[in-house]
Design a protein around this nucleic acid. Structure first.
Lengths: 153, 153
DNA sequence: TACTAAATGAGAACCATTCCAAAGTAATGC
DNA sequence: GCATTACTTTGGAATGGTTCTCATTTAGTA
C-alpha cells in the first residue's frame, strides 16, 4: 500500500489533469508513483490483488492508456512481448538489457539540455510541432555481462 | 525493382554479415535500402508482389527479425498497432506524428556526438555494456498541424 | 554432384490488447 | 442530501499482429 503522502500527491495529480477520481485510477497511479519497476499490466494486476481483487484487465489497460494520453506515464517495450509502463514524474530515459529485458532509469546533469536541443533541432528540420520524445539505450546489464562471461574492463 | 547498384550493395551487406543469401532476403533488403517509407510487413508483401508472389508472412517476419538482430534494420512503433521497419544505413532518428503516425528520418551535424555522449553517460551510470540506442521525437507533422487548424508561429 | 544445415511457406496457434454491452459510480447542480 | 448524467468499470468475446510447427526446398561446401 502506498504511503499517505503518495495518496495525496496522486489525488492531486488526477485532479490537476481533470481526470475523474476512481479508486482504480488512484490506486494504480499510486502504485506507479511508488514503484519504479516498469510493470506490465499483469504485474500491476498481481501487485494490487489485495486492494483491487476484482479489477479487470480492461480497466488496467484503459487506465494506463489514459495516463499515457495525459503524459503521466510512458510505454516501454523490452522485447518480452508485452508493454511496460513507467511513471514519468521527472525527466529520465531508459537503459534496456538486450539479454534479460531489465529496464533501469537513467539521467544525468545536462540530460535535459540534450533533450531540449534534440527537440529544437527536430522542430527546425522536420517542421513537426514537438510534444515529447523517447530515448532508449540498449546493452547488457552488469548481471548479464557476468552471466554470459563477458568482461568489460 | 531495385537498381543494379543496390542489388550489388545489398548482396555485399548480406555476405559481410555472413547471412545465407536467399532471393527473399536479398530482395527484401534491397527494398528497404531503396525505400525509406518505414514499411510494415504487409506493405513489404504488397510491394514485392511481382518479385516474390508466393512469399509467406513468416518469411518476411523471419527475415526482418534477422536483420534487426544484425542491426541492419530498426523496428518502429507509430501507434497503428503494427511494427514498422527502417534500414539503418546511416545514423539518424525518427520524428513520429502523434496524429497520423507519419514517420520521418532526421539527423543533423553533431547528432552523432549527442548519441555518443548519451551512450557514454549511460555506460558510466548504469554499468551497462552499450550496444545501441533509439531516439524518437513526437509531435504533429506539418500536414496535421494544418488539418487540425493549429498554427505554429 | 552429394551432403548438411539453414531457410521457406502455409496454416495453426498464441496472446496481448481492444471492443462491447450492461451495470456501477463520480461529479454536478438543485 | 438527492437525482441526474456522463463517464468508468467489468468480464467475456473478438481482433489481429506475430510466432510456431513442420514438411519441403535450397544455399553453401567439400
Amino acid at each position: 500500500m502506498a504511503s499517505n503522502a503518495v495518496m495525496e500527491e496522486t489525488l492531486q495529480v488526477l485532479k490537476d489533469h481533470k481526470l475523474r477520481v476512481t479508486p482504480q485510477r488512484h490506486i494504480i497511479l499510486a502504485y506507479l508513483v511508488s514503484h519504479h519497476n516498469h510493470p506490465t499490466v499483469e504485474t500491476i494486476r498481481d501487485a494490487l490483488g489485495k486492494e483491487l481483487p476484482n479489477i479487470g484487465s480492461s480497466t488496467i489497460y484503459n487506465t494506463l492508456n489514459t495516463f499515457v494520453d495525459h503524459h503521466l506515464v510512458v510505454e516501454l517495450q523490452n522485447g518480452d512481448g508485452s508493454t511496460h509502463y513507467d511513471y514519468f514524474g521527472s525527466p529520465h530515459y531508459h537503459a534496456i538489457c538486450t539479454n534479460c529485458g531489465r529496464i533501469v532509469d537513467v539521467t544525468y546533469p545536462g540530460f535535459s539540455d540534450t533533450e531540449k536541443r534534440l527537440e529544437e533541432k527536430t522542430a527546425e528540420i522536420s517542421g513537426y510541432m514537438i510534444s515529447g520524445n523517447h530515448m532508449e539505450v540498449y546493452g547488457l546489464c552488469p548481471e548479464c555481462q557476468i552471466k554470459l562471461g563477458i568482461k568489460n574492463d
